[in-house]
């Protein structure tokens, strides 16, 4: 994508900023006054025990839910309350915790269709879909190590491969910000290592900003450069892995909660 002068003006060092983000479900305040800032090029994690509001936070940022209060600014634009497709078009991609893929299509068709959508071909009625946007499709398949599975229907993939496809679909959106909801859930150790190596590579070599949640603390502490802790919908603290590791409150929330 060519960078126009206007975008250069609008672009700041902050790619994502939420202010006072709040969401209630029934009586439950799932997200409570969260003000969060993510720098361009960052690779950060959001952690918290079950029900801490990580998924709701992602849902609010990506447009799945509309916040009751607060705002979301993405790449200098106010995107509060916009529907998911509008936010996706602006360059935010999301991969889901429970893999949400297109079961009856093959791996190739999954990725190819996602790339075609990104390339503005969703309303192309007459081209042969098998011949559109193949270069980028192959690139992504190779990147996500799915090339040898290309003709397998997505519904038949192993859990680990489904998560890889999940990531591939997110990458097809050519995002500037990638939200990954537990990218390694259900993966083997080997697959986890592979996937996180890819995440690191995307961040370092391709300059992609990445925000992820994860249950596996070793993944979090080894791969995130900064960690934010949510607890009962509130943002408790944000700091480097070393700071978070040393923090008493983290200890009490995590260890206290599990003891």
């Amino acid at each position: 994508m060519t960078v126009t002068p206007i975008e250069t003006v609008a672009a700041t060092d902050t790619i994502l900023e939420t202010r006072g983000l709040t969401k209630d479900f029934g009586g439950l305040r799932a997200t409570n006054d969260v003000s969060f800032t993510l720098a361009r090029g960052a690779k950060e994690a959001i952690i918290g025990p079950n029900g801490a509001g990580k998924s709701t936070f992602f849902a609010l940022v990506s447009g799945r839910h509309r916040p009751d209060a607060g705002s979301v600014t993405f790449d200098g634009q106010d995107v509060t309350g916009l529907p998911p497709h509008e936010i996706a078009r602006r360059g935010m991609s999301r991969a889901f915790q429970v893999s949400s893929i297109f079961n009856r299509l093959t791996v190739l068709e999954n990725v190819r269709s996602a790339v075609q959508v990104r390339r503005g071909r969703a309303f192309d009625f007459f081209s042969d879909a098998r011949r559109v946007a193949l270069d980028r499709t192959e690139e992504i398949l190779a990147l996500c190590r799915l090339a040898d599975r290309r003709h397998v229907p997505a519904g038949e993939l192993s859990q680990g491969d489904k998560k890889k496809l999940e990531l591939a679909l997110a990458l097809a959106g050519e995002p500037r910000l990638l939200l990954l909801d537990e990218p390694t859930a259900g993966m083997s150790l080997e697959e986890t290592r592979e996937t996180m190596a890819l995440v690191d590579d995307l961040n370092e070599s391709h300059g992609l900003t990445i925000l992820f949640t994860e249950h596996d603390m070793s993944v979090v502490f080894n791969h995130a450069r900064r960690i934010t802790l949510l607890h009962r919908g509130r943002m408790i603290l944000s700091g480097s892995p070393a700071e978070v590791r040393a923090n008493d409150e983290v200890q009490s929330i995590y260890l206290g909660g599990q003891a």
Partner: peptide
């Protein structure tokens, strides 16, 4: 069999996810 045809299939298999790919469902 066009890209539009495949957009329809995306909708069929998983409409919620389709929106996150940037499609106005």
């Amino acid at each position: 069999r066009s890209p539009f045809g495949y957009t329809l299939r995306l909708l069929r298999d998983n409409p919620a996810r389709t929106a996150f790919l940037g499609i106005d469902v």
